[in-house]
Design a protein around this nucleic acid. Sequence first.
DNA 1: TCAAAAGTGTTGAACATACACCCATGT
DNA 2: ACATGGGTGTATGTTCAACACTTTTGA
Lengths: 231, 231
Amino acid sequence: MTYDASEFPPFAVTVDLAVLTLRAGNLCVLLITRGEEPFRGQLALPGGFVHVTESTDAAAIRELAEETGVHTFPGHIEQLATYSEPERDPRMRVVSVAYVAFAPDLPEPVAGTDAADAAWTAVDDLPDSLAFDHRTILDDAIERVRSKLEYTTLATQFVGTTFTLRELQTVYETVWDVTWDRANFRRKVLGTPDFVRPVDGETVATGTRGRHAQLYRAGDAMTLHPPILRG
Amino acid sequence: MTYDASEFPPFAVTVDLAVLTLRAGNLCVLLITRGEEPFRGQLALPGGFVHVTESTDAAAIRELAEETGVHTFPGHIEQLATYSEPERDPRMRVVSVAYVAFAPDLPEPVAGTDAADAAWTAVDDLPDSLAFDHRTILDDAIERVRSKLEYTTLATQFVGTTFTLRELQTVYETVWDVTWDRANFRRKVLGTPDFVRPVDGETVATGTRGRHAQLYRAGDAMTLHPPILRG
DNA sequence: TCAAAAGTGTTGAACATACACCCATGT
DNA sequence: ACATGGGTGTATGTTCAACACTTTTGA
């Protein structure tokens, strides 16, 4: 295996982002409307070219800030997979490294920024097809988030820095479309070492009525032993 | 986002393979010795350039056949992750899509083939460093196989098409470095729907002495509910 | 004082663990 | 016959699921 400029075919490398959040009890994804051909007018995942001086991780983080308009992104981002079918882009040979990001409820994208044509869409209410192979990427991203809830502390990325156990429970119930017994969920979470940590003393929050809830912060644990199961 | 030849920097795209198997009670990986600079003489993961007409999946499968010398690969291969640090290859900008393959015990690589300089190395007995960022890739591959044993039927890929429950148990014990109670392991596996399926009737195998064991085939299940835990 | 939401207790069922024991086979 | 390894039984402890109950708060 020797390297020489004539030996390898050149590829364009892009990143695509599946940014997921919970809004009003629905799992939502950030989609843009394409302004140019091909797929003009269709919905697509945000993304862009990788610069020659940066890693794909760096490119994904850069694009994430541009597309959401938030400069210190409050959630978590990780690589999903790489998509490379030769015909996935009709114009040239493009390999795309997809990332999935999880965030608490973010502000609506604002006109006048790079994110002007971006909007949150409930994943249960997607159009029949997205541009390129983005539907495949998005399906993989949704499967990723559902399975990672089970054996990691990812759920805490969908709520604010402090949260009630009820809010955390709602994350599981929304993403998995199941219901949990409140008491059993509480025991499961509190019985897992370093999953959550209570915020000191007097700290409580309020809903509209009823007893105030203890606030918690994410703990140090990244993986859950044993996992939390869907029932 | 418009495309034009002057706008995107060209990348070389390669695939790297972490081919894992069990040999004599050790988790082993297929490594080649590099014949050219850079990293001449050091161990590296097998791999190669992606052709302009093929997907990275196709390239990985092609390389896998070439490197192992086996044309219908008996195990499982899946994408691991993409590695793209700008300085990962000192000569040019290379993005590498890594794959991990799991196989039952394969024949020793034979001289006179493309796989001539390849050899199985126990992962507990690796040199301090591998070429490029291949040590990082390999560490990720090992973590992948360890975690996938827990919630998928991947373990069946490390044994032949038919196997005894004892052989399957040895897979878990070797990869995780734990011991299981034989009776409890049996109940766990047989109690999981579609994990394994007994091979009909008279079919039994033999060790050196003792009662013949029932043979099983992998079942239809891909994921395990509940997962098998490390204890 | 009532409704709503947080938090605790309790009970029977299901499961896991650690063994003891029986069965089939080759030497 | 006996050692070896496959296969089954069982008692004990732990966890889980369902649901009743108590506490705290706002209206």
